[in-house]
Design a binder for these strands. Structure first.
Lengths: 269, 269
DNA sequence: TGTATCGGTTCATATATTGAACCATTGGTT
DNA sequence: AACCAATGGTTCAATATATGAACCGATACA
């Protein structure tokens, strides 16, 4: 591990819950000698990445981040971070992968990618996703702001015989979704489409959108569903990271519960 | 210079105007060997501070900044209270308004806003402001901690023919700044830029940063200068209040003196 | 075809990093 | 008031780690 890497690793110990860290505490957290940690912190302070609170002598994140975060946002639009995970998702599942973003109370299609594996594939041809009738929508209802549910309950147009059209049924499905960490919709919007969806979070750590796989319904098997779930987890982690967020512990726990039996899944980078 | 410091210094080369940098170009900018630069960039990439654009192979700032900037702002709220006063300042003057914060002995760019009034406008494209060559820097020297002057006097690189490069001239300018309550710099850093700057104070009632207006030099008239001064006062009071501080009486008195007499408002000759 | 870039890799050299032991202060306990 | 256990910060010999010239393969260009 390079000296620079050790230095950078120090920054990861500063969080919302522990925004100020003294030298000794930082040593313990980093598991490194005090002199070493001190020099590393000096380098960080020099560059504006940490600053010392004059009152407490403890260190906190510095002002340089604001400027650099601004440049990052200007450089990389949100869509750019979605391309690679979606590609992997579509490849691994052989189905259509897509991402939607929540803006206000509407889920907008942001990007989609079709796998070339099969000659039949699902094409997403809507700009916005109905909340009650799609896996993405259920995901938003389960993990997004609560006002979405009030709005969705008001009008639930029927698209297919499978569409959920009663508030009770909707709430039941949302409960299952919360417990699982994924949403699922079989033919609720378009007849032959089976969809699975996981939430994405941004730098506010709030629900920001969904990543989904839309399958031709006749191809769905338990094995494929499992593969899709596993890769949805990876894609969600990857996109969430790229958008500057972190997956809430409660979601990770739900995923772990749904995927028991598989080895630990590494985040996508 | 430590290896970590060299690594961190690489990040300062990424700006809005140069958001993506290839390995070779980064070597030249950093003035360092390619292998060294490569390893440093690797360490940065590992930590999420840069990422490689797969298409161009060039590097750009990474997603880690979004999270860290958010934590910084939650720890030390600075940016939140700056938006509104800057907006008013930019609107009222028709020029570019910006805020810098002092951390240690360095002035970091915090936020900026360009007025849409004119088709030509000043773009702030630096992360840190040189103390001797900018209005913000002069402001820090005049109203900030005394050790800044020792530091600034040591190295005063010349950026333009107008740059102050002798300690005597610098001290003279600082004296004028103290007396006026504003700093002023005409083309000292970039040739066609005329800048005016007022200090900001935080909850310790010590100098915490600057609020400035950067004008296209050819547009500066005594009338515009007066408007800028008046609105700088308002912006400084507003931001100082928001940061939990209060403007020292001595500064208020200096402002009052500057804004009654007309001669003090004349631009630098 | 030859040349000049580019991103990335290797390896001997020597320079910069390391941590135990050491201060000087501070704040709480007896 | 003396004591103790923290804290932030410093020193120096030992050595682990960073360094850069030279190299590689790929690409672009003329």
């Amino acid at each position: 591990m390079s000296s620079a890497a050790k230095t950078l690793a120090l920054l990861s110990h500063f969080t919302d819950l522990r925004p100020e860290i003294g030298l000794s505490q930082l040593c313990r957290l980093a598991g490194r000698d005090k002199a070493t940690t001190y020099r590393h912190v000096q380098a960080l302070e020099e560059a504006g990445f940490v600053e010392q609170n004059p009152a407490t002598k403890r260190y906190r994140l510095g002002p340089a981040f604001l400027q650099l975060a601004r440049t990052r946002e200007r450089t990389v639009p949100r869509k750019a971070g979605v391309e690679a995970p979606l590609h992997m998702l579509a490849e691994a599942t052989g189905e259509t992968a897509h991402v939607a973003v929540l803006s206000g109370t509407t889920l907008y299609a942001l990007h989609q990618l079709e796998s070339v594996k099969h000659s039949t594939r699902v094409l997403i041809d809507v700009n916005t996703f109905p909340l009650h009738a799609t896996a993405s929508g259920l995901c938003a209802l389960a993990f997004g702001p609560t006002e979405l549910l009030d709005l969705a309950s008001k009008t639930m147009p029927r698209f297919t015989p499978e569409t959920i059209t009663t508030p009770d049924a909707l709430e039941g499905e949302i409960a299952v979704t919360r417990q699982r960490g994924f949403a699922q919709s079989s033919g609720g919007y378009e007849h032959d489409v089976h969809s699975m969806s996981a939430p994405i979070f941004d730098q506010t750590d709030l629900f920001a959108g969904t990543v989904s796989v839309a399958c031709v319904a006749t191809r769905v098997t338990p094995e494929l569903a499992r593969i899709i779930y596993e890769h949805l987890v990876l894609a969600s982690r990857g996109i969430t990271y790229n958008w500057g967020g972190s997956v809430p512990d409660i979601i990770e726990a739900a995923w772990a519960g749904s995927l028991t039996g598989t080895e630990a899944l590494e985040p996508m980078t």
